[in-house]
Amino acid sequence: MAEEHKHGYYTGDIHNQFVEEHHVPGIKKTIWKTFWILLGVTIFEVAIAFAPLNKELLQWIFVVLTIVKSAYIVGIFMHLFHEQFTFKYTILLPFILIVYLIFIALAEGVYLFDIAK
């Protein structure tokens, strides 16, 4: 069997499919590049936290940079970018509900503040 020479493991479910581990030779370089990006973004965030910028603009910058950082962690470190298309979207799509929850909960908070005045 060809699988004997390949590295990998079996899925362990009813089909017990063989999953080959794809070892990418340049992966170490990618890992360290990701590290420097994450570190750079974090230092940048702390540096601009007290910059004389519009508060709302600053908050949006932080939100965008946080999403960038999490994309690197989930995509590269947790390897999700290289998983199968169906699996990727099974993991990611439920978070649309979180976006909706942010919308309704923050709207509720603003409303409670307004009626308490």
Binding site: E3, Y9, Y10, T11, G12, D13, H15, N16, Q17, F18, V19, E83, Q84, T86, F87, T90
Partner: peptide, 23 residues
């Protein structure tokens, strides 16, 4: 154990996500 890669992940006979159950 499938020797060749099937056309559709949803046609049955394969693990659609191609990851181990633990992962």
């Amino acid at each position: 154990m499938t020797a060749s890669k099937p056309k559709s992940a949803w046609g049955g006979g394969v693990s659609p996500f191609n990851v181990s159950w633990g992962k």
